[in-house]
Deep mutational scan, measured.
Amino acid sequence: MGMPNRKYADGEVVMGRWPGSVLYYEVQVTSYDDASHLYTVKYKDGTELALKESDIRLQS
């Protein structure tokens, strides 16, 4: 078993793309699913969504 190939840690605050949009919002990573390679993130309004790594970026 190798290390999970994840870029962002639980609790890390990053920018997540809103689905169907080009806009990124501040989100907190809450979990990562090794099987689906999706991150569960929480937006400031409390919305929780699963995002692909390509829809997440570090805060500038």
Rank of each mutant, 00 (worst) to 15 (best):
M1T: 15
M1C: 15
M1Y: 01
M1V: 15
M1N: 15
M1D: 15
M1P: 15
G2H: 07
G2I: 06
G2N: 06
G2S: 04
G2E: 15
M3L: 13
M3Q: 15
M3D: 14
M3S: 15
M3R: 14
M3H: 15
P4Y: 07
P4W: 04
P4E: 14
P4A: 10
P4M: 09
P4V: 11
P4R: 03
P4I: 11
P4T: 08
N5R: 02
N5E: 15
N5H: 05
N5Q: 14
R6I: 04
R6P: 05
R6A: 04
R6W: 03
R6C: 05
R6G: 03
R6L: 02
K7D: 02
K7H: 06
K7Y: 05
K7E: 04
K7T: 08
Y8L: 04
Y8M: 01
Y8H: 05
Y8F: 13
Y8W: 09
Y8G: 01
Y8A: 03
Y8D: 01
A9K: 11
A9F: 10
A9M: 11
A9R: 09
A9W: 08
A9G: 09
D10C: 05
D10R: 03
D10G: 03
D10H: 04
D10V: 09
G11L: 05
G11K: 05
G11A: 04
G11Q: 05
G11Y: 06
G11T: 03
G11P: 02
E12I: 07
E12A: 11
E12Q: 13
E12L: 10
V13D: 04
V13F: 13
V13M: 13
V13S: 06
V13C: 10
V13P: 03
V14W: 01
V14Y: 03
V14I: 04
V14A: 05
V14H: 02
V14N: 00
V14M: 02
V14K: 00
V14G: 01
V14T: 02
V14R: 01
M15T: 04
M15C: 15
M15D: 05
M15V: 05
M15H: 07
G16D: 00
G16C: 12
G16P: 01
G16L: 08
G16Y: 05
R17W: 03
R17K: 11
R17N: 04
R17L: 09
R17C: 04
R17P: 06
R17S: 03
W18H: 07
W18P: 10
W18Q: 07
W18N: 04
W18K: 11
W18Y: 10
W18A: 10
W18V: 08
P19E: 05
P19K: 05
P19T: 03
P19H: 06
P19Q: 05
P19L: 05
P19C: 06
P19D: 05
G20Q: 06
G20E: 07
G20V: 02
G20L: 05
G20C: 08
G20M: 06
G20K: 05
G20D: 08
S21Y: 04
S21I: 02
S21H: 06
S21M: 06
S21K: 07
V22Q: 14
V22M: 15
V22C: 15
V22I: 12
V22H: 14
V22G: 13
V22W: 12
L23P: 02
L23E: 14
L23Y: 11
L23N: 10
L23S: 10
L23V: 13
L23H: 13
Y24W: 15
Y24A: 02
Y24K: 01
Y24H: 04
Y24N: 01
Y24I: 03
Y24F: 12
Y25D: 06
Y25C: 13
Y25M: 11
Y25Q: 09
Y25R: 10
E26H: 07
V27Q: 00
V27P: 00
V27A: 12
V27H: 00
V27Y: 06
V27I: 05
V27R: 00
Q28H: 07
Q28R: 11
Q28I: 15
Q28L: 12
Q28E: 13
Q28T: 15
Q28Y: 10
Q28D: 02
V29A: 00
V29H: 00
V29E: 00
T30V: 15
T30R: 08
T30E: 10
S31M: 08
S31K: 10
S31D: 09
S31W: 07
S31R: 09
S31T: 07
S31E: 06
S31Y: 09
S31I: 02
Y32N: 00
Y32Q: 00
Y32A: 00
Y32M: 01
Y32L: 01
Y32V: 01
Y32G: 00
Y32P: 00
D33I: 03
D33Y: 02
D33N: 09
D33K: 01
D33A: 03
D33R: 01
D34P: 10
D34I: 06
D34Y: 08
D34V: 08
D34N: 08
D34W: 06
A35C: 11
A35W: 09
A35T: 12
A35P: 05
A35V: 14
A35N: 12
A35I: 11
A35R: 10
A35S: 12
S36F: 07
S36C: 09
S36Y: 08
S36M: 11
S36W: 06
S36K: 12
H37T: 10
H37Y: 10
H37E: 15
L38M: 13
L38V: 09
L38G: 03
L38H: 08
L38S: 09
L38N: 07
Y39A: 01
Y39C: 02
Y39T: 01
Y39N: 01
T40A: 07
T40W: 13
T40G: 06
T40L: 13
T40Y: 13
T40Q: 10
T40V: 10
V41R: 00
V41E: 03
V41C: 09
V41Y: 00
V41S: 00
K42P: 00
K42D: 01
K42I: 13
K42W: 06
K42E: 07
K42Q: 13
K42L: 12
Y43W: 11
Y43F: 14
Y43D: 10
Y43C: 13
Y43K: 07
Y43L: 14
Y43T: 13
Y43V: 08
K44R: 10
K44D: 07
K44Q: 11
K44C: 13
K44V: 11
K44S: 11
K44N: 08
K44P: 12
K44L: 11
K44H: 12
K44G: 10
D45C: 08
D45A: 02
D45V: 02
D45Q: 03
D45G: 04
D45L: 02
D45M: 02
G46A: 04
G46I: 03
G46V: 04
G46W: 04
G46M: 03
G46S: 04
T47W: 07
T47V: 08
T47N: 05
T47K: 08
T47C: 12
T47E: 05
T47M: 07
T47P: 05
E48W: 06
E48Q: 11
E48T: 13
E48L: 13
L49Q: 07
L49T: 08
L49C: 10
L49R: 09
L49H: 14
L49S: 06
A50T: 14
A50I: 14
A50S: 13
A50N: 13
A50D: 09
A50W: 13
L51I: 11
L51S: 00
L51Y: 02
L51P: 00
L51C: 04
K52W: 09
K52A: 12
K52F: 11
K52I: 08
K52M: 11
E53Y: 04
E53K: 02
E53I: 04
E53T: 04
E53M: 04
E53C: 05
E53D: 08
S54F: 07
S54K: 10
S54C: 12
S54Y: 07
S54V: 11
S54Q: 12
S54A: 12
S54D: 13
S54W: 07
S54P: 05
S54I: 10
D55C: 06
I56K: 00
I56D: 01
I56P: 01
I56Y: 00
I56W: 00
I56R: 01
I56A: 01
I56S: 00
R57D: 06
R57E: 09
R57T: 08
R57H: 09
R57I: 11
R57P: 02
R57Y: 12
R57L: 10
L58Q: 13
L58M: 12
L58F: 11
L58E: 14
L58S: 15
L58D: 14
L58W: 10
Q59E: 11
Q59G: 13
Q59R: 14
Q59S: 14
Q59F: 12
Q59K: 15
S60Q: 12
S60R: 11
S60M: 12
S60H: 12
S60G: 13
